[in-house]
Design a protein around this nucleic acid. Sequence first.
DNA 1: GATACCTGTCAGTATCTTCTGACACATGGT
DNA 2: ACCATGTGTCAGAAGATACTGACAGGTATC
Lengths: 111, 111
Amino acid sequence: MVIPTDDITGTDLLQTLTALAHPQRLRIVAALAEGRNYVSQLARDMRMSRPLLHMHLARLEAAGLVRSEMEVSDDGKAMRYVELAPFSVHVTPEVIAGAVAQGLDSTQAEE
Amino acid sequence: MVIPTDDITGTDLLQTLTALAHPQRLRIVAALAEGRNYVSQLARDMRMSRPLLHMHLARLEAAGLVRSEMEVSDDGKAMRYVELAPFSVHVTPEVIAGAVAQGLDSTQAEE
DNA sequence: GATACCTGTCAGTATCTTCTGACACATGGT
DNA sequence: ACCATGTGTCAGAAGATACTGACAGGTATC
């Protein structure tokens, strides 16, 4: 799924940007670029606590940058496999101006 | 100045993303897309305190998304005019993987 | 000299995000 | 039954960021 940066709302653009704007999450995306993986293994690979990884993945998935699905392994364990959504985010001043015009709900309201 | 997203370091990519990943700063960029402005006027336009705007602008400028210069008006006042740097940031999984490989100094060190 | 603009910075507070550790549940093998 | 593996969630500590208000300095006009 490709994220269209044209005709995007400010809120969505912001969600995409905040999802990416964190060192751990960049590392996660880089790790997933090598292929899909399940959560516990990924947590071990990156030396990150599982609850923390869970939170970061939730953030990435909410932004549509990552996809996941439950699978049952041969030995019966339920495992969540995570993979990248092949996104493409193109940001320019014009894109931002358009997005903000489409609406940006921060806690700050304009008059 | 266009920010090349290819062959960028993880640290630089992160700085660019964190600079953009904030509602106020998106609004600032959108406002500056209409043309350059000086700080106090811009603060009034966006109903934002001047120290706060100052901080956001510093962040945007450090990331190379905005440029500024001091000018002296006809009536002798020193004014800082701010304008957009026409950036273009293209983010894909490949770009992120490459950037992280180029180095990402978070507070987290890998073994 | 007081006022009205402009500039910048600082300390302290408030708020949000990140992170840890503990808990609960499920399955299969020893 | 117990241990090892997987899943998820929660409360609270820790840390980073955003934000406010007050201060300092500058020049020109009344």
